[in-house]
């Protein structure tokens, strides 16, 4: 077993176990914490794949930003100690059937397909390259999606303020 394999098994085990806990835990604040573990392990996978910049974004934005946002809203809308009520049995079974069928189909397909192996050495991606690619308009340049995303974020910000603010009526 190489180091990479050991790391991968640890991360993916954490991801799968805590994902399951996230969707089954009856205490909502714990569920949020388990989600945080999942996201941090994902960041670990990114580190392992040497996407350092992406892993940093994952940690700051997802783990730091979104999870905190979720916890805030939990505190605003729920009593911390309360347990969530259990879903109905039939609902669970139906959902399990759908999810299991989908997972089985996808995994079967993945195992059937023989992905080509590449031999190109990539090396480390520098922040410099990322910045250039993000602002370049040429081939492999991402200026347009970048602009679109920034407008989307602005719109989302304005929209959430307008929706969430108290109405005068």
């Amino acid at each position: 077993m190489t180091n990479n394999q050991i790391m991968f098994f640890i991360f993916s085990a954490v991801i799968v176990i805590f994902s399951i806990l996230t969707v089954t835990s009856r205490r909502i604040l714990r569920a949020a914490t388990f989600l945080l573990f999942v996201l941090v392990s994902t960041a670990g996978l990114y580190f392992m794949l040497r996407f350092n910049f992406l892993a940093a974004i994952q940690l700051t934005l997802y783990a730091g930003g979104i999870v905190v946002l979720i916890i805030f809203s939990i505190l605003l809308t729920s009593q911390v100690g309360a347990k969530l009520e259990l879903p109905g049995l039939s609902k669970k079974i139906y959902a399990l059937i759908a999810a299991a069928a989908g997972a089985a189909l996808c995994i079967w397909t993945i195992l059937q397909y023989n992905f080509p192996r590449t031999s190109i050495e990539s090396g480390r991606t520098s922040i410099d390259d990322i910045g250039k690619a993000l602002t370049s308009t040429g081939k492999y340049g991402y200026a347009l999606p970048f602009e679109v995303i920034s407008i989307l974020l602005l719109a989302a910000m304005i929209g959430s303020i307008v929706i969430a603010k108290k109405r005068k009526d």
């Binding site: 994902s19 809203s73 809308t77 959902a95 999810a99 996808c106």
Partner: peptide, 23 residues
């Protein structure tokens, strides 16, 4: 894939909107 369908399962069974958002 496993993570994805666990998320799907959570989305289908959870009643609380915030937990659905987590899924």
């Amino acid at each position: 894939t496993l993570m994805f369908f666990i998320g799907i399962y959570g989305f289908l069974v959870r009643k609380n909107l915030i937990t659905m958002l987590m899924s």
